[in-house]
């Protein structure tokens, strides 16, 4: 069945689908904003969990 055909269920579930879509967009925006905020803090961090890594922090007195 072509996807262009609109069934009654599409209308009935519009609010649910729109809500889920908006939640996903908001989640992406939050992750992006959080990443920027973490980077602006200037920590030496690895990207995968946005946490500072002591192991990559330069030791005081060393180059």
């Amino acid at each position: 069945m072509p996807i262009t055909e609109t069934h009654e269920i599409h209308k009935r579930r519009f609010s649910r689908n729109l809500g889920v879509a908006l939640c996903l967009v908001a989640f992406i925006a939050i992750i992006f904003g959080l990443t920027i905020a973490k980077i602006q803090q200037g920590y030496s961090m690895e990207a995968f969990d946005h946490q500072p890594r002591l192991s990559i922090t330069p030791v005081e007195g060393e180059e």
Binding site: I9, S15, R16, G19, V20
Partner: peptide, 17 residues
Amino acid sequence: ATANTVAAEGEAQFGDY
């Protein structure tokens, strides 16, 4: 689709979640 049409009565909207 038919199964969902049968269950249409009182179906949850986003607000219910």
